[in-house]
Design a protein around this nucleic acid. Structure first.
Lengths: 204, 204
DNA sequence: ACCAACCTAATGTGTGTTCAGTAGGTTGGT
DNA sequence: ACCAACCTACTGAACACACATTAGGTTGGT
């Protein structure tokens, strides 16, 4: 009870703090996508969030903890908008839209992945998990199609899933490097070739 | 003439210097592949090459120049072993072998690419060029096959080339992250699907 | 009075780079 | 054979800077 009233008492103050916290998280996410973790300084994030480095560390107790907070937020967001039941090929067709939707936070995982390739890198385990989950999700999508009779059964879902994830990641990187690439056309073509492989002859 | 005698004169000394230089380049390349440019320090390279940071800067006038020297050396090496006339699909089939051949300097370009995505990054232009050259090379390989009557002519070489480069880059990253991936199997499958797309029906 | 939300200033560490100096070899004249 | 002049390959110490983090103080809403 007491705790609750105290919590209510500083409501606007806490709300302000929470706003700042969210702002910091979003700024940090953008910086991470742009420059990676090691070459993003607290000073830079702090400046863009409108406070000093010391002020920033009032909200997050260390740079490391901020990193994990950003990742947690992003994971939660991704989970919320995940779709595990629709058609795989249709879902892949929606990827270019996501690229265009939020271009400046698109590369975050790509950048962090490269920064944490070494087995003893701080985020290695976490990102390896994420990668394997992505592959498993695609694999499940293929299996679903096979069981529903929409996809051919003579494709190895595990292997094909790795290929698809590699293409999606590679394509993301290519696009981040060269935004003049005709994403729509490329994905259209890729989807066409996916259909050719996954769907029974005559249905394409 | 004078220049020649002077050059010959300090032969053993210059040879020692050249050895060190090469050693530094190779160490630097390995460090770059492992940790990227920004988080590799001169001190680290120097230590692994058996001298002090100041001693290192006797051979390369700055960290930046060392970076470019590494890239130049690597480009020359790549050029030397490039094959622009064989069959594209066969060449792709040899990629896993190269992965296994030199695993610890494999990721260098992948890492540098990610570190230089921003248009004003120091290596952006250079890596963008390299990427476009890679796409153009693959495209030329497809065109060659088409003109030779080996490949179907209803594929857009430019678009398909972007797809292939994306897959190769993405696959490299996936493998760097998780070396337990069955590379051979995945590439075999991918080549199969490439044949299905590129070769006339009935020849696969 | 209390507490969240800051700030300024300072600390310690790591960075790329410079600079003066040293060790050891080569060259050309005597 | 000797020596001064010159070279390459380094070292050790110092520099200026950027960094994450801390300590202690200030402001302002409740």
């Amino acid at each position: 009870m007491k705790g609750w009233t105290v919590q209510r008492a500083y409501d606007t103050l806490l709300a302000k703090g929470e706003d700042r916290r969210q702002l910091i998280l979003s700024v940090a996410q953008r910086c991470l996508a742009k420059n990676g973790w090691r070459s993003t300084s607290l000073a830079q994030i702090a400046r863009e969030a409108g406070l000093t480095p010391a002020g920033l560390l009032h909200h997050f107790e260390s740079k490391d903890q901020l990193l994990h907070a950003v990742l947690d937020a992003r994971d939660a967001d991704d989970d919320a908008r995940a779709d595990r039941s629709g058609d795989l090929i249709e879902q892949i067709g929606r990827v270019p839209g996501r690229f265009a939707e939020s271009p400046d936070l698109m590369g975050m995982y790509a950048v962090l992945l490269i920064e944490n390739l070494e087995p003893d890198a701080p985020l290695h385990e976490r990102l390896l998990d994420r990668h394997r989950t992505a592959v498993a999700t695609i694999e499940a999508g293929i299996l679903r199609g096979q069981h529903a009779g929409r996809y051919r059964t003579d494709v190895n879902p595990a292997v094909k899933a790795v290929e698809i994830v590699a293409f999606l990641n590679g394509m993301e990187t290519s696009w981040l490097l060269d935004r003049s690439l005709p994403l729509a056309e490329i994905f259209e073509d890729y989807i066409q070739s996916l259909k050719q492989q996954l769907m029974p002859a005559g249905t394409v």
